[in-house]
Design a protein around this nucleic acid. Structure first.
Length: 883
RNA sequence: GGAACUAUAGCUCAGAUGGUUAGAGUACCACGUUGACAUCGUGGGGGUCACUGGUUCGAGUCCAGUUAGUUCCACCA
């Protein structure tokens, strides 16, 4: 940009963005060391999966973080953004398995554990960094030198420590109980990994014969007939008069020769179905609980592969749904099928593969949540950790109040292997070391538990494991608790809750002070972006076409915290236009900085200078306050409005004469100085949102330091706030707009200058006189006459009335009396309406008595203003009639 | 069955703690290429703030209810 004549008119983000990211990295702008003398600010990045491909959710999430980080860095805080990625056990394993299957036709069992894991590590080395490359193109300013991985040595050590510690406290246990099993992924799942979706199921009514009674039946209703062979009771409600006599009797279970009891239990709903329900403790969580209450037998009829077991008798080997059909057919043939009703009901699906989850009894490892939740809930309720927006607090506490034990073992290989070794002779051993090779008690042979931990187990430790725990590192001391966690509302349960639990248990402190929750990015129709719908928009496509700055600004503005937003290309374009506008404003500045010397003698500030400096102070204050309240969208809007609506639309226009006039060096220097000052500050305010273009411009403006990202955040200077100046400028701008408006009404040739007469209040007289040049310049006025309001009204002129100013435009021969009358009439009507409203208030005794004095005074001033305006308009209209 | 969110201009959305003639972007209409920018400029039209009550001197903003839509949680087979 040094060669002014060659600056392109259109901003080209692609080259610029690449250049600056490399520059920042090379200059170590992202790196930080713990500095206890400074205020810490730390965010740990929600680790993307190594299988991840950047999507809009990442783009939003990381832009929000980057804005907070860049802002705090400029504020001078000791600012750390800790990046990392997640091994994503099940997701990655499935992905690599698929690849091996495709390329070699082998399964992981064919390869064996060791070889398979080698392959996954290879895959990770090859593709794992892809997501980071993509994140970099967004401009994220995290400290890449500190990048962590959930399976790296430190994080793995933390996992083992936590596991062993919880085990020793009795908070991790191994148990045999009903769990969620994915027959496709072939592993146990936790409750949160099961997604309940409404299925259009059926309710089958089936006659169960009473044992030892001829032709007597109890009709039950079930949505899962295939579990009939696993029934070990039929239950009715003890209050149910229909069935009271039957309790204690026996049923001959159809298709078997087993007799099962009829039991009474409060759980049974009298209204649903027939009021009698078959109980299959091995395949339904409720039935399981009831089984415990009534000491029922558990019979597993569906195996881990989703096929019927030999316990199911003749159905053995059949797929569970095939079996369902066959059982219905058999019951129908036996005359036991009474009827079939439609019955929409929720069915659990595997979050990962979408298959229907089978509840079944299995031996797994669990975290006992009961003793852990209290601290994690208390710290939120007493405000040590605050959700932003606060409504998510309730989501969190409600969920925590109903939490079940967390099943943490997975029948997968990719992940943290459970640090438990079993002695062949003397029972279990648990150790936080990895090198157990013989039983420490008896020296006998040991073997390690085959299972791996839930991926979220290591994620739960992320805020402290990444900072070095279990070592008490400088980083941990300085940055824990972290400042903000930024994440979507969809993973509060998976992640946020568990981090709070683990943070409280192991650090005895919250993991983060704020949880900043955002919504989802949806498509133009408001649908979730998803692979299956094919409606996802690739952030990189946007970056390559429009630049990361544009994508970032678009994602952040135009919505409020916690709410979903829609992705619109038209919004991308309008943001791109904003970038271009900034570009051109800066181009203008640079084209007019020739000969600029910051130390040269300058003329005093003009009204426009004082005005824009005053506006800058308000903007600085508002933006800073809004950022502090996490109102990032609103802050962005304020900056946008300042740059486009005030710097570009007004200030630049007003200083053009001074910049063009090289004869008056001092005046020119002042304009140059203020322009640089204001533009530079605006770039700083905008930098967290649009890091690249602001850097590019800042580097070309006179500056100190090596990067805008290390520059000091603009300071609010109250001494530069000037209400009188703003009032004067406002009157001038209103006057200019009124003149433009009237000229447009009569289609005056845009370039054609015309005279104007202003009658102004005493308060404004001086400022208008002194700055009549502004009005002439932007109002296209040649002869400007300024007089007092009491002066004689000019005849044969168009009129407008603004605050304290009557504007007369003698547009000879251009006035269309009829049109002008109508225009005035509309304004007169508006004024009548406003005066009525105002009078209503001012005549209200309650208002006068109870409203604050300043509100009353303000209303009174408004009414006076309206009335003056009305009189002027009416006079003018009366005059028109005489023409 | 609980709970949350949303309802403001044709469209997408802002409008903290109640007092603005209810705003922006986009779309639309008119005029315009004057030496930053047509990815632009100037001007304009367009909203009884979902509905009904209530609190208040005053409600888009607070409360209750209604309607519509979205989402989350939940062991009614």
């Amino acid at each position: 940009m040094s060669e002014e004549n060659n600056i392109p008119k259109v901003y080209d983000p692609v080259a610029v963005e690449k250049k600056w990211y490399e520059y920042w990295e090379k200059n170590g702008c992202f790196h930080v060391e713990a500095d206890p003398s400074k205020k810490p600010f730390c965010i740990v990045m929600p680790p993307p999966n190594i299988t991840g491909k950047l999507h809009m959710g990442h783009a939003l999430d990381n832009t929000l973080q980057d804005i907070l980080i860049r802002w705090h860095r400029m504020m001078g805080d000791n600012t750390l953004w800790m990046p990392g990625y997640d091994h994503a056990g099940l997701a990655t394993q499935i992905k690599v398995e698929e690849e091996i299957k495709k390329n070699e036709g082998l399964t992981r069992y064919d390869l064996g554990r060791e070889e398979f894991l080698k392959r996954v590590w290879q895959w990770k080395e090859q593709y794992g960094e892809r997501i980071f490359t993509q994140l970099k193109s967004l401009g994220v300013s995290c400290d890449w030198d500190r990048k962590r991985f959930t399976l790296d040595e430190g994080c793995s050590k933390a996992v083992r420590e936590v596991f062993v510690s919880l085990y020793e406290k009795g908070l991790i246990y191994k148990g045999t109980r009903i769990i969620n099993w994915c027959v496709h992924c072939n592993t146990a799942l936790s409750d949160v990994e099961v997604e309940h979706k409404d299925d259009t199921g059926h309710l089958w009514y089936i006659k169960y014969p009473l044992a030892g009674e001829k032709d007597q039946y109890l009709t039950i209703a079930t949505t899962r007939p295939e579990t009939i062979p696993g029934d070990t009771a039929v239950a009715v409600n003890p209050k149910d008069e229909r069935y009271g006599k039957l309790v204690g009797k026996k049923i001959l279970l159809p298709g078997t020769d087993r007799e099962i009891p009829i039991i009474a239990d409060d759980y049974v709903d009298l209204q649903f179905g027939t009021g009698a329900v078959k109980i299959t403790p091995a395949h339904d969580p409720n039935d399981y609980e009831m089984g415990i209450r009534h000491h029922l037998e558990n019979i597993n009829v569906i195996g881990l592969d989703g096929k019927m077991t030999k316990e199911s008798g003749k159905y053995v080997g059949q797929d569970r749904y095939e079996c369902r059909k066959n059982i219905i057919a058999d019951l129908d043939a036996a005359g036991l099928l009474v009827k079939i009703e439609d019955c929409p009901h929720a069915v659990g699906h595997c979050q990962r593969c979408g298959n229907v989850v089978e509840p079944l009894i299995s031996t797994q490892w669990f975290v006992k949540m009961g003793p852990l939740v209290k601290a994690a809930v208390d710290c939120v309720e007493n405000g040590q950790t605050q959700f932003v927006p606060p409504r998510f607090t309730k989501t969190y506490t409600n969920w925590m109040a109903n939490i079940h034990d967390w099943c943490i073992s997975r029948q997968i290989w990719w992940g943290h292997r459970i640090p438990v070794w079993y002695c062949d002779d003397c029972g279990a051993v648990v150790a936080s070391r990895t090198d157990i090779d013989k039983c420490p008690k008896c020296g006998g042979h040991v073997h390690q538990d085959e299972d791996a931990l839930d991926t979220w187990f290591s994620s739960a430790l992320w805020p402290f494991s990444t900072l070095g725990w279990p070592e008490n590192t400088d980083l941990l001391k300085q940055f824990y608790p972290t400042s903000v966690l930024v994440t979507g509302y969809d993973i509060i349960f998976f992640w946020v809750a568990r981090m709070l639990v683990m943070g409280e248990e192991f650090m005895k402190k919250v993991p983060f002070e704020k949880v900043f929750i955002h919504g989802l990015v949806r498509d133009e129709q408001g649908r979730k972006m998803s692979k299956s719908l094919g409606n996802g928009i690739d952030p990189l496509e946007v970056v390559n076409k429009y630049g990361a700055d544009t994508l970032r600004f678009m994602l952040i503005t135009g919505n409020t915290p916690g709410n979903d937003m829609r992705f619109y290309w038209s919004r991308i374009e309008s943001t791109r236009n904003f970038a271009n506008k900034i570009w051109n404003a800066s181009r203008f500045a640079l084209m007019n900085l020739d000969g600029y010397d910051a130390k040269a003698k300058r003329a005093p500030y003009t009204l426009a200078d004082k005005w824009i400096l005053s506006r800058l102070q308000h903007t600085t204050k508002d933006v800073t306050d809004l950022l502090g309240r996490f109102e990032l969208g609103e802050a962005g809007r304020v900056i946008y409005e300042f740059i486009w609506g005030e710097i570009c639309d007004w200030y630049i226009e007003l200083i053009k004469p001074r910049l063009y006039n090289k004869d008056n060096a001092e005046e020119r220097a002042t304009a140059q100085y203020v322009l640089c000052e204001v533009l530079g500050s605006a770039m700083k305010l905008l930098h967290p949102y649009m890091p690249f273009i602001t850097e590019e411009i800042w580097q070309h403006l006179p500056h100190e330091g090596k990067s805008i990202m290390l520059a000091q955040w603009p300071e609010y200077k109250e001494s530069l706030v000037n209400a009188d100046v703003e009032a004067g400028m406002t009157a001038i701008m209103e006057t200019i707009k009124a003149i433009r408006n009237m000229r447009a009404e009569v289609n005056a040739a845009p370039g054609h200058k015309a005279p104007a007469i202003l009658l102004v209040s005493d308060a404004l007289k001086n400022v208008m006189e002194e700055n009549k040049g502004y009005i002439q310049l932007l109002g296209t006025v040649d002869n400007l006459t300024i007089d007092k309001l009491s002066a004689a009204k000019p005849k044969n002129a168009m009129t407008a009335v603004v605050s304290g100013v009557e504007v007369y435009l003698p547009l000879k021969g251009l006035i269309d009396v009829e049109k002008e009358t109508a225009r005035l009439q509309k304004e007169i009507d508006d004024m009548h309406k406003e005066i009525k409203r105002s009078e209503g208030k001012l005549n209200n005794k309650g208002f006068l008595a109870k409203a604050p004095a300043e509100v009353v005074a303000k209303e009174q001033a408004k009414e006076d203003e309206y009335k003056k305006k009305l009189v002027a308009l009416q006079e003018r209209q009366a005059y028109l009639q005489t023409l």
